[in-house]
Simulated scan of single mutants.
Amino acid sequence: MRHRTKTYLLTNEEIEKLFQRAEIGRLGTHSEDGYPYVLPMHFVYYDNKIYMHGLPKGKKIDNIKFNSNVCFEIDEMLSLLYDGVENPCDVNTEFNSIILRGQASLVNNLEEKSIALSKIVEKFTPHLMNKELPINMIKGTAVIKIEIFDYVGRYYK
């Protein structure tokens, strides 16, 4: 790896496009035991917020209740840059990434949950987006919302 890899800032338009096309982000939370906890999550970016869904119990839910300050990371590796490279340490990676900080909360409002879940269906299973979500599924699914405080998008090529 190069010691002085230059990364460049993505434009707001490029960040918006990466939010839309990325399928998995990594949610970073704080555990009561003092250790960070990071897990991959499907997500949707909607109304300048990140929405995720999952089971209503578990470590991520416990951590958000303990400390709602979170980070979220999205990346895409486009290629390895090794043409003309003779030293393995000089190989680099073409990538795009976003790192954000925010506050996570569990969405309790049924209308907001329904909208978020519909946006997730639209993104991941668009062929099912005209199907009505059963109210018991909406009620039984945890929807996590991240209010974004700040973010940075970077690329290298």
Rank of each mutant, 00 (worst) to 15 (best):
T11L: 00
V70H: 02
E13M: 00
N92H: 11
G140E: 02
H127Y: 05
T125Y: 09
G28M: 06
T11C: 01
G84P: 02
M41G: 13
K119W: 12
I15M: 08
I15S: 01
Y82M: 10
M77N: 15
N130L: 05
H127M: 06
I146F: 09
Y35S: 15
K123Y: 11
D47F: 13
M1I: 10
L80T: 14
T5P: 08
L55F: 13
K49N: 15
I99M: 07
T7R: 06
N96G: 01
E94Y: 08
N48F: 14
R26Y: 13
L110V: 10
P56L: 04
G140V: 02
H42Q: 15
H127V: 05
Y156A: 15
M1N: 13
G102T: 05
G84V: 02
D83R: 00
E14K: 00
D33L: 04
T7F: 09
K157R: 13
E13Q: 00
I135W: 02
K157M: 09
Y51K: 09
F43S: 14
E13Y: 00
P88Y: 06
C71W: 07
G54N: 03
G153V: 04
N63Q: 03
L9T: 07
T11N: 01
S97D: 09
F124I: 05
Y155M: 11
G84F: 03
E14V: 00
T93Q: 11
V107I: 14
P88Q: 07
Y46H: 15
M52L: 10
V121S: 10
L110R: 09
S31T: 10
K57Y: 12
N48S: 15
I24C: 13
I120L: 13
K6S: 03
I50H: 07
E147S: 12
M137P: 05
V38C: 14
G25T: 11
N63I: 02
I120Q: 03
M137C: 10
G25P: 14
A104M: 05
K57Q: 13
N69H: 10
K113W: 10
P126D: 09
L10Y: 04
R2A: 12
L80S: 14
I115E: 11
R4A: 09
S97N: 03
F95W: 11
I61R: 03
N48V: 11
N12I: 04
K57R: 11
K139S: 09
E94D: 15
R21K: 15
G84S: 03
L78P: 08
G28N: 11
P56A: 04
H53Y: 05
Y51V: 05
M129N: 11
E94T: 06
L117V: 08
F72G: 04
G28H: 06
Y37R: 02
N87D: 15
D33V: 02
N87L: 07
F124S: 08
T29Y: 08
H30D: 14
I50P: 05
I24S: 12
K60R: 12
E16I: 03
L18P: 08
R26H: 12
T93G: 03
D62K: 01
S79W: 10
S105P: 04
E76F: 08
V85W: 05
N87Q: 08
N96D: 11
G84L: 04
A22F: 12
R2C: 06
Y37P: 05
E14P: 00
Q20N: 15
P40F: 12
L128C: 10
E73P: 07
E86L: 02
N109A: 08
L110S: 13
